[in-house]
Amino acid sequence: MSDFLKNPLSSGSSADATARKEALMNQVRSELALTNAQELINKMNEKCFLKCVTKPSTSLSSSEETCLTRCMERYMQAFDIISKSYTARLSRESLEPRL
């Protein structure tokens, strides 16, 4: 009949359950996005340090900083190119039956 006649122990309207479901999904999404970003930053740090800071001195020089800036941009671009290439390959393999 009306809501207040329902068993209070099976509480939570469907709107409440939907909200909890959405919250859970968003939490999973943001944790994965965070992990992904951390991985990218760690790899980029390692690769660009190797390329740009060849002989560490008492501070980063401006040319090292220029190199690091470009290296970061290129690394993210490389990630993007490879992601596209891999996606294209996967969709091709799923269309063509394996020989």
Partner: peptide, 21 residues
């Protein structure tokens, strides 16, 4: 995403030999 990180790591070393421009 894990695979793309792995490929980017490998292919960066193979393909990008000079200073990043």
């Amino acid at each position: 995403n894990q695979s793309v990180h792995h490929f980017t790591d490998m292919c960066w070393d193979k393909c990008i030999t000079g200073t990043p421009s």
